[in-house]
Computed example of a mutant assay.
Amino acid sequence: MPEQSPVPETTVPETTVPDDGTTPAVCPNCGRSFVTDRQRALHVGERHDATPAERRAYEDAREAESDELFRLHLKVVFAVGLLYAASVVAGVVAFSLPG
């Protein structure tokens, strides 16, 4: 029976520094780079022991992300409702045509 190689406990994604001169947000604990400060705040709050200031930033970032997710859900429900309404109208029109 062939031996399986061990799975690494953590995977560090490859990151690059943007060419526009902006400095990426970096985790103060592990040095991982993030595109936005909000992503860094979420990472620090979930993966490391956060200071009170980092905890507040994490809670703010989490609330902002929750708001964005709620808006996305509203858009999806609206789109599904429009598709359903269009199919009902198309069905009514198709069955009302003489044929």
Rank of each mutant, 00 (worst) to 15 (best):
V44D: 01
E54L: 01
F34Q: 03
E46K: 12
L83H: 14
A85C: 07
E65W: 07
F95K: 15
E59T: 08
T22H: 03
V26G: 07
A90R: 13
R71Y: 09
P2F: 08
R47K: 12
D20S: 07
A25K: 08
T22Q: 06
T36F: 05
D60A: 13
T51P: 12
V88K: 11
E59L: 14
V17N: 09
E46I: 00
R32V: 00
P13Q: 03
D20V: 07
A85V: 10
V93Y: 02
T15F: 04
Y84S: 14
D60I: 14
S96G: 15
L97C: 14
T11D: 04
E14R: 06
S87K: 13
R47Y: 11
V92C: 14
C30L: 07
E46G: 04
S5N: 07
A61Y: 00
L74F: 01
L74C: 12
D67L: 04
A85R: 12
V88I: 15
P6V: 02
P98R: 08
G81N: 15
L69R: 12
P18K: 02
A85I: 12
C27V: 05
F34A: 00
Y84L: 15
G91K: 05
L42I: 13
V88G: 10
M1H: 00
G81F: 09
Y58L: 07
F34L: 03
P24K: 03
A53V: 11
T15P: 01
D19A: 10
A94R: 14
V17D: 04
D49W: 05
R47C: 14
V89P: 03
A57H: 11
V17K: 13
P98D: 08
P24R: 06
P6Y: 01
V89G: 12
T11K: 03
G45E: 08
D60V: 13
R40P: 04
R56C: 06
L69F: 02
S87I: 10
L42Q: 09
A85Q: 10
A90T: 10
P98K: 13
D49H: 08
E14C: 04
V93D: 09
P6D: 02
A86W: 09
E9D: 01
Q39V: 03
D67I: 05
S87V: 12
R32D: 04
H43P: 00
L72I: 02
A61M: 00
E3M: 06
K75D: 13
D67N: 12
A50D: 04
A79G: 14
T22M: 01
E63A: 08
V80S: 13
S5Y: 01
E14I: 05
S33M: 10
F78G: 10
M1D: 00
A90Q: 08
H43L: 04
V12F: 11
V80N: 10
D19N: 04
A85H: 08
V7I: 07
V77T: 13
K75G: 12
P52N: 08
V88W: 10
G21T: 03
L83D: 15
G31I: 15
R40T: 05
E68W: 01
S87T: 12
Q39Y: 10
T36Y: 09
C30Q: 11
P13W: 04
V44I: 15
V26Y: 02
T10R: 06
F70L: 07
T11M: 04
A64H: 13
G45P: 02
A57Y: 02
A25L: 03
